[in-house]
Simulated scan of single mutants.
Amino acid sequence: MITTEPATDPFDEHRRLLFATAYRMLGTVSDAEDIVQDAWLTWNKADRSQVRHPKAYLVRAVTNLSLNRLTSARARREEYVGPWLPEPLLTAPDVADGRELAESVSTAMLVVLETLAPVERAVFVLREAFGYSHAEIAGFLDRPEPSVRQIAHRARTHVAQRRHRYDSDSAERERITQRFLSACAGGDLNAVLEMLAPDVTAWSDGGGKVTAGRRPLHGPDHVARFLLGVLTKPAMAGVTVTTAVINGELGVLVLREGEPIGSFTYDLQGGLLRNIRIQVNPDKLAGLRR
């Protein structure tokens, strides 16, 4: 008797793509997971015989569910305590190998995407991160293709004006990160100052749940003293600080007994740290669990 393996469920086949789409649209791991679960419920109830292209059907479902979530999230973020930063996500090294894919999930990019209107963000993510055609996106959003082209152009221009590339190869980033961590561990203020760009800014997101800066810190002196002050607190005893690939780039992961309690990511410019983003909100660390 001949037996065949059961066909893979299209939802399982495309689950990673669906999460990746929702995460880039929302900037939060928890919301992206909720969206994927809602998409599964939609798929489970669908008449599969009427679905000619399961992948397109699922991406469309995730896109529209994410748009609905974005609208309510924007209202909630107006009441957020202190700076709002995206939820960090540990990513496999192979993601960092794909420059464009890594760029689309970087913390810096997610921060810029927050400044787009929801539909602009959806179009930008689908077009620039995943390469869907304007016609396909028009189908996902039930909008005319010329309208989608205009939205895509407007979103691309907006992002280009706000997102500056700071290129560095992985070896250089590793070297600079290790040097920076050594300077911090040694409490060497001058060594830390030497590694910060003159216009460095640091944001810390505690969400009102833990102590964090309520406003951005500007300038090497303020940023260096803040970082060293945090790392030398008694509460940091027994904490492990290590490197990890976070949102497609090498960053810093802070652990206590193996559990994440914070992370920071940053841009590099001319070998100096610029735009440091520190995440310590305990509600936004699930994506850092290995």
Rank of each mutant, 00 (worst) to 15 (best):
E145Y: 06
P54T: 07
E174W: 08
R173W: 04
T28R: 02
G213D: 13
S106K: 04
V239D: 05
E78T: 15
L41I: 09
R256I: 07
H218S: 14
H222A: 14
R24G: 03
A197E: 01
R215M: 15
G131K: 03
V210I: 15
N281S: 10
W43F: 07
S170V: 15
T71V: 15
A73Q: 10
R165F: 15
I246V: 02
L268T: 03
H153A: 10
G251C: 04
G206H: 03
N247Y: 00
S168R: 07
E5L: 14
W40E: 10
I278N: 12
T21I: 13
A235N: 14
T21H: 03
E78L: 15
N281Y: 02
L126P: 00
E33T: 11
V200W: 01
L70A: 05
A32T: 03
T3V: 14
H14Y: 14
R289F: 04
V105N: 00
P216S: 15
V62G: 00
A244D: 05
G287A: 00
V111T: 13
E103H: 08
G186P: 09
D97S: 09
E136F: 08
T157D: 11
G82W: 01
A155H: 02
S133K: 00
R290P: 04
A183M: 04
V230S: 04
T240D: 15
A7N: 09
T232S: 13
T157H: 11
A61I: 02
G139F: 06
E174H: 09
A155E: 00
L101R: 14
R69M: 05
G219D: 06
P260M: 00
E103I: 02
K209C: 08
A7D: 11
R60C: 01
L181W: 05
L101M: 15
R277T: 09
D199M: 01
V36K: 00
N247Q: 07
D12L: 11
N64H: 10
H164I: 12
A224Y: 04
Y57L: 07
L58E: 01
E136N: 12
P83T: 03
A183V: 07
Q37T: 15
T21W: 01
V119L: 13
D94C: 07
I276G: 01
T91R: 06
L231D: 10
E145K: 12
R48D: 07
R215N: 15
S72I: 15
P88V: 02
L110N: 04
V119G: 00
T3G: 09
R214V: 13
D94K: 09
P86N: 00
R149Y: 06
L126V: 02
G238V: 05
A102L: 09
L196F: 02
P146K: 00
T63D: 02
Q269C: 08
N68S: 10
E13Q: 12
S170Q: 13
L227S: 04
A197H: 06
R163T: 05
N281W: 05
A61R: 01
T21L: 10
L217A: 12
Y266N: 02
H218L: 13
A185N: 14
M25V: 03
R143K: 13
A138M: 03
A22N: 00
A212G: 08
N247G: 05
Q161S: 14
H218V: 14
V123P: 00
F19K: 07
G213H: 12
L250K: 01
E13A: 11
S204E: 13
R165T: 14
E100G: 10
V111I: 14
A102P: 06
D221P: 08
D167G: 12
K55P: 04
T91C: 07
